[in-house]
């Protein structure tokens, strides 16, 4: 299923967003999707371990929507909109706390297809529609049981 994150978009967040994506890191993400990350894996929680920057780290990444209920994960990046979604989407997600390195967990999913999901981010919980959640790439903390 095509998600807003699958198509290319110019980051409208700010001029500097491409620079903090870091040299090389945005390239490394193109192997997974054509999304423009707000920030590469180099920012945030991986800052201490430079070895994890790059292609090798992206293999365990997934969209937040693919995460199972109760599985702990960390935000890797928040991608920009595809032109149809509100331009403020990426910025607002970041303002709500969806920033690289933050702990996330799915609290609830609806029964119906395309129902929103409830996501724990840090110490807060937000209901996100799927296209919003699809813009968030995460890495599970432990293998899914």
């Amino acid at each position: 299923m095509a998600t807003p994150c699958d198509s290319l978009a110019v980051p409208s967040f700010s001029a500097s967003s491409s620079s903090i994506a870091g040299s090389g890191s945005s390239g490394s993400f193109s192997a997974v999707s054509s999304c423009n990350p707000i920030a590469g894996a180099s920012a945030g929680y991986i800052a201490g371990s430079s070895s994890s920057v790059g292609l090798s780290s992206s293999s365990g990444d997934m969209q937040l929507t693919d995460l199972g209920i109760g599985t702990c994960a960390r935000v890797v990046s928040v991608v920009q909109h595809d032109g149809k979604a509100p331009v403020e989407l990426g910025r607002r997600l970041a303002e709500l706390g969806f920033l690289p390195g933050e702990a996330v967990r799915i609290v609830a999913k609806g029964l119906m297809a395309r129902a929103p999901i409830a996501v724990r981010i840090g110490t807060g919980t937000f209901a996100l529609r799927l296209f919003e959640a699809a813009c968030i790439r995460v890495r599970p903390e432990q293998p899914t049981a």
């Binding site: 909109h81 979604a85 607002r92 709500l96 919980t125 937000f126």
Partner: peptide, 12 residues
């Protein structure tokens, strides 16, 4: 309509 945001906080 395009995409409509939800982003609703579920407080404790």
């Amino acid at each position: 309509a395009g995409y409509q945001s939800l982003m609703l906080e579920l407080p404790a």
